[in-house]
Design a protein around this nucleic acid. Structure first.
Lengths: 200, 200
DNA sequence: CATAACCTTGACAAGCTGCCAGAGATAGCG
DNA sequence: CGCTATCTCTGGCAGCTTGTCAAGGTTATG
């Protein structure tokens, strides 16, 4: 929240406070992942604290969800940075991007049911600010090298591919495909979208 | 609801009851379309009735949403039946399918934010029972005639294309593309997915 | 017109969110 | 070790929403 407030000197939080915050975020990730409409009481119980303690750190339910998504985005970003998307051959880099996505979706199933926040207009969460640009950059590179066709805008392809992966993940969640099948179909379809030939 | 109950003789409903039901469904379509978390009171007010009248016809909020989706699915199905998907050349039929989808999404923006039902697992709404099979049949026909490549399962392609269209619609909703741009990108991408060459 | 179906009003219980104050516990500092 | 700021817990409260019920008024249908 106010961790990076420029004006205040790095206001030291007590150790147990940081522990509580971590436990709450973790419990929210798990509980909301399998039941997006879980109550604050449920989340607090899963974290081993009381409801008021949750409110002591997150002013509202939406704020908790936002913090959760921001933490997830940071993890996702770190995984993408570790995947050397900028150096591997474009088609391989694409496969690595998708692989990071699969790991991410397995860890944060909440993001398949973005049902939680009632009011907010912002589909613009931290994820959509951070992930698509990385993929767009990769696609642009592939289009430059001629590995991908350039007749579709890279920004659109990036969002389309991310949407495709979510569709594939939904297939798995609905029991209409195994994880392996979905990953293979998603990769093949992604390559088709980018205009790269599928190597089998 | 119980309109097609085999046992009971066609229990005639009073005219104003049918009028109320229609008004409620219409109000729910509009209000939930622009504010998915609207309360029952809001919907009732928009329909010109009281909240209890809504409950007189729909036992719960979820039941109302389900009825709404079922009505939407019936409309969608009628539009698809009128689009002669089974006779036109596959690529043209695909364009018609997408066109029907755009009209549908413009009329039922609720289905871009499927946030409503808290408890139920059913991502299997009436739409997913009815729309994908039509598209799958079309794709299978195109694969048979050689217009589309057959190396990806038609069932997967159908879901992927529907997901692609929702991604494109989200782009428009987020103001990142105009309607025309989104429709063009979606069509081109769909043809790529199916392996049909884009004719320009 | 008489009746059954429907609508409305008012009230109620239950659950969830968000807030506040006070008492208790704990970590970090001198 | 003891003190103090900080964190947590208990308990309660208001407001909103969902869902239900009963009583009485209204409308369509036969």
């Amino acid at each position: 929240m106010d961790l990076h407030d420029a004006a205040t000197p790095p206001r030291r939080r007590r150790a147990d406070a940081r522990r509580s915050i971590h436990a709450i975020l973790n419990a929210a990730r798990v509980v909301l992942g399998e039941r997006p409409d879980a109550s604050m009481e449920d989340i607090a119980a899963a974290a081993g604290v009381t409801r008021q303690t949750v409110y002591a750190h997150f002013p509202s339910r939406d704020a908790l969800v936002v913090a959760l998504i921001e933490a997830a985005a940071a993890e996702y970003l770190a995984a993408l940075d570790a995947a050397s998307l900028d150096t591997a051959p474009p088609a391989d880099a694409l496969a690595r991007f998708l692989d990071a996505g699969w790991r991410f979706l397995r860890r944060h199933p909440l993001l398949l049911n973005p049902a939680a926040p009632g009011a907010p207009r912002p589909n613009r969460n931290a994820l959509s600010d951070v992930v698509p640009p990385r993929l767009e950059q990769l696609i642009r590179r592939g289009q430059g090298t001629g590995d991908f066709r350039a007749s579709l805008p890279a920004a659109w392809l990036a969002d389309a591919i991310i949407g495709l992966q979510q569709t594939a993940a939904a297939q798995v969640a609905a029991g209409r495909a195994t994880t392996q099948e979905a990953e293979a179909l998603c990769l093949e379809s992604t390559l088709r979208l980018c205009g790269g030939e599928a190597r089998r």
